[in-house]
């Protein structure tokens, strides 16, 4: 794992939180993450997730993203071929102190969730001009 990152990724299988009864089979959404001078931007692939089902929760050290997919296998229907896994998504990211927890922006479009985590003011790079 790289160092000096404010966002790291944990395997969800190790987290205690999934011990809670959860009838929904979830998969770990793939993510692209980039860092800008003042923020971290997470892009998560969650095809089929409904906007209203997406939950983003944050505590001191983690960011948890969950979503569910509306089923399309109706009654009296047969699933002939199945590659799309699960009916929901869940992924946990570890956060360090550098993230401003009160300043999180999220947007969902075309099956991709974008979460923007702003860095705390004091950690943003500053340019110091020579007088």
């Amino acid at each position: 794992m790289s160092t000096n990152n404010d966002v790291t990724v944990v395997q969800q299988d190790n987290t205690a939180m999934i011990r809670k009864p959860d009838p929904v089979a979830t998969v770990t959404p793939l993510a692209d993450i980039y860092e800008t001078p003042d923020a971290y931007v997470l892009l998560l692939d969650m095809p089929g997730a409904t906007k209203d089902s997406i939950s983003i929760t944050m505590d001191q050290s983690t960011l948890v993203i969950r979503a569910s997919v509306e089923g399309y296998v109706r009654e009296n229907a047969t699933l002939l071929f199945n590659e799309i896994p699960g009916v929901g998504f869940q992924r946990t990211f570890n956060l360090t102190d550098g993230i401003d927890r009160d300043n999180v922006d999220a947007r969902y479009e075309n099956g991709v969730l974008m979460v923007k985590l702003l860095k705390k003011e004091e950690l943003k790079p500053r340019e110091i001009r020579i007088q």
């Binding site: 790289s2 990152n5 793939l30 692209d32 993450i33 980039y34 860092e35 001078p37 971290y40 931007v41």
Partner: peptide, 10 residues
């Protein structure tokens, strides 16, 4: 001025 931290999406 940004850099990739992770790149999983195909």
């Amino acid at each position: 001025k940004a850099r990739w931290v992770r790149n999983e999406i195909r």
